[in-house]
Structure formats: C-alpha cells, structure tokens
Amino acid sequence: MSTARANRITPYLFMAPAAVIMAIALLYPLGFMVYGSFRDWDPSQSIGETEFVGFKNYVTLWFDPAFRESLSVTLIFAFSVVTAEMILGVGLALLLDRNIRGMSLLRTLFILPMMIAPVVVGLMWRYMYHPTVGTFNRTLKSMGLEGVDWLGQHALLSVIIADIWQWTPFIFILALAALQSLPRSALEAARIDGATAWQQIIHIKLPLMMPVLVVTALLRLIDAFKVLEVILVMTEGGPGLSTEIVALRISRTATEFRELGTAAAMSNYLLILLLLFTIGMFTLTRLQEARAKRLARQIQEDE
C-alpha cells in the first residue's frame, strides 16, 4: 500500500524542481508582461503604482511607423536568412554527401561559428566590414576597386551575410544527417534504373528529406527572430532604423525611452507572431506523421 502511494508521488518528485523554476522564471514573467502591456509603466515605478490604460500601448504601436519599420526589417531579415541558408546548406549537403577524407574535419570546423558568442561574431564582422581598416575594403582596394560602404548603405545586407556565415552550417549538418539516413534501397533502385544524378536528387533525395527539411527551416526561422547581439554589436540598429529588428527595439524602448508598458506590448506582438509560426510547425509535423502512418498502412494492406 505504501509502496503504491510512493510510486504515485515519484513522478511529481522528479518533475517538481523543473516545474517550479519554469513557473517562477518563465510563465510568471510572461503573464506579468501581458499584464504590464496594458499599463503606463515607468522603470522607476513598481507595477502596483502604474495606471491602467487598456489597449492604448497596442494601438499606438500599431500606428507607429518606426515599429512597423522594425517589424518589416525583422521579417525581411528572418525570411532572407532562412531562404539563403536553406539553399546553401542543402546544396552543400547534396554536393558533399560522399565518403571523402576530410569530411569529419569540415564538420568539426563548420560548427565553430555557431558555438562562439554572437557578441564575438558581431565584433569580427564589424572589423571585417570596417570602411578603412576592414578586410573586405582593403582587399577590394588592393585589387584597384572602390571600397563598399558595408555597414552604411548596405547595412541590412551585411548583417544578413554575417548571419548566413554563422548559421548555414546548422542547416548543412542537419541536411547531411538526413541524407545519410535515407534508405539505401531506394537510391540503389534508382541507380539501377539509370536515373541521372539530377533525377536522383529531384525525384528521390529531396522528397524523402522533405519532412526533416521543413522542421529544420521552421526551427531556424524561429531562431532568426531571436538574433540580437550580432546586430547590436555590428550596427546598433543603424544607420537610421535600417537594421533595427524588433528585439533590438524592445530593448531600446525599455532602457533608452524608459517606456516599459510599450516595450511589453511590443514583446507581446513578437510573441504572438512566433506563436503562429510554432503552431504552423506543429500542424505540419502532425500532418506529416499522419501521412506516414497512412502510407505504412497502405503498404501493409498491399502485402
């Protein structure tokens, strides 16, 4: 009897520390943020002293051109890095999917960019983009060409390039893992039937990799909305608002403009956007699972 009761409490004992910490430091703050977003809130006030303003913060933001600008910068940034990284990463994986010497060295060195601090990535690229001492302009000038105003005129593009450098390896490694776990029999059959390399890629490899690729792209997309430090160090959001992503704007609204209520409403907008993407990802994986199950059943019935 007592062992039965002990067994019933055990899972709760194992779960308790994690549940308590996540409740105190994640869920409570998130609720607090939603609550604060309806208030006129100054950092010097505690939340009890603030005034309830209803949806004022949300409405102001909706019609605020600066916020809209930073929202569109964020979307452009996120979608262009994910597109470029998917094409490059999957392309490289298809090209390099063979047993050649040096692959494991490449994989090891390839994950370096994502392991080192975003702050450090930002400072390396800020140095390389520097108008006079930077590597790129120096190389261009030594070849007799004009220097490019990387972090000025082309700031968003430069930031996107830095992110592509850092995160293409992520896609590459996941795509390579997916490729190497494909059923050998299907590829073998295609080769015997005389399919060219291109036909193999388009009709067999890509469709079979698709489930993994979709999840990878969505994971990367959600992560792309978290990027902040690289851009902060490289451009601080400038020049003007050209690289000010929403995350950066939240931090500036909170610390420079000292409007915590508005910053909270902004965070909430970002959260809702990400929630939509996450729900999209869930539905897609569920659909794929259902499809895989149906196919498996069909095959069984055929036998």
Binding site: L26, L30, L248, S251, S267, T278
Partner: peptide, 10 residues
C-alpha cells in the same frame, strides 16, 4: 520559442 528579448521587460 520564447526569445530572450521578450523576457527582458518582465
């Protein structure tokens, strides 16, 4: 999926 920036204010 919650970004650190969202947690900043609360």
């Amino acid at each position: 999926m919650v970004p650190p920036a969202v947690l900043l204010v609360p």
